[in-house]
């Protein structure tokens, strides 16, 4: 046989970014962002609703709760749906064939896909957080005039915390996107991936219950299984610091950093696992 005519192809962050950019563009042109507009209208309307109840300064807590609640709900849905859709559109339309038939590493393809989805969800989180912070600021300013006694120590909302909470949600969605991509790298259908994505979302939110229950389980094998479950799935509850916004004491920023590190580490690990699984996938 002939001697090789070329040397190896090094990993390229540039190629990874090209895939990411294209994934982002696809999401934008599929009008996924129309969802954001709907959400913005929903948020604005819900803020108006709370005025009806005359909650006083506590109205801010309601706005923050509903704002972050909407972000968690719509963000989780967007993350799972966008990851599965943007991955399977490549497989089903056979565009994955044309890309992977080029001199590109599968690692670049998978992380490119991830980065594209992560950027989409990032824009979603940034817009929602900005909108929420704007709503809170406007309403707080109005309430400060109406009830100065409730704001004797100044503003109640720590606005930096609103952005930290939004950022941590983004990281959580990043872990969820990586998990969905891992499932997609095994799965043959979009539907199965979406269902499994939601399953992972629920399990990761409830894994703390398994940890809590561990000590009370009498049967040893079951106890081991419960313990294993507690380790296999990341704890998504730890990212939900938004509950603390507008409740007096501000967030502990060292704690937020730890949670951020936890999210980033999981994104890297699950991303590598998705690459491992996708490497063996027959396209």
């Amino acid at each position: 046989m002939n001697a090789p005519t070329r040397t190896g192809v090094p990993f390229s962050f540039g190629r990874l970014l090209v895939v990411a950019q294209n994934t982002f563009l696809e999401a934008v042109r599929q009008k996924l962002f129309a969802l954001l507009l709907l959400l913005a209208i929903g948020l604005g309307a819900s803020a108006q609703l709370f005025r009806e109840f005359n909650f006083g300064s506590s109205e801010l807590k309601f706005i923050a709760d509903f704002g972050f609640g909407a972000m968690i709900f719509f963000g989780s849905t967007l993350t799972i749906a966008a990851t599965a859709q943007l991955f399977f559109s490549e497989i089903e339309n056979r565009t994955a064939l044309t890309i992977l038939a080029k001199p590109i590493w599968r690692t670049e393809f998978i992380f490119g896909k991830f980065l594209g989805v992560f950027a989409v969800v990032g824009v979603f989180c940034a817009l929602t957080t900005l909108l929420l912070a704007g709503l809170l600021f406007a309403r707080e300013s109005a309430l400060m005039e109406a009830h100065p006694e409730a704001f004797e120590h100044g503003r109640i909302i720590h606005y930096a915390d609103v952005f930290v909470a939004g950022g941590l949600q983004w990281l959580k969605f990043g872990v969820l996107a990586a998990f969905t991509l891992l499932v997609a790298s095994y799965s043959n259908t979009n539907l199965f991936t979406v269902i499994m994505g939601f399953f992972v979302l629920v399990v990761c939110h409830l894994q703390y219950l398994a940890r809590d229950a561990y000590a009370q389980v009498a049967s040893v094998p079951l106890r081991l299984l419960v313990r294993l479950l507690g380790y296999v799935f990341p704890n998504f509850q730890v990212f939900n610091v938004a509950d603390q916004v507008g409740m007096g004491a501000g967030l502990n920023h060292l704690m937020a950093l730890r949670i951020g590190g936890y999210g980033l580490a999981y994104i890297a690990i699950i991303g590598v696992l998705a690459v491992y699984s996708f490497r063996n996938r027959e396209i």
């Binding site: 891992l182 294993l228 730890r258 936890y262």
Partner: peptide, 22 residues
């Protein structure tokens, strides 16, 4: 099995990062 094993190991290794915050 490799995926489950690595995830369990990751959970174990990252517990010190998560536990204080949790």
């Amino acid at each position: 099995a490799v995926v489950a094993g690595v995830l369990a190991l990751a959970g174990l290794m990252l517990r010190p990062l998560e536990a204080p915050a949790w």
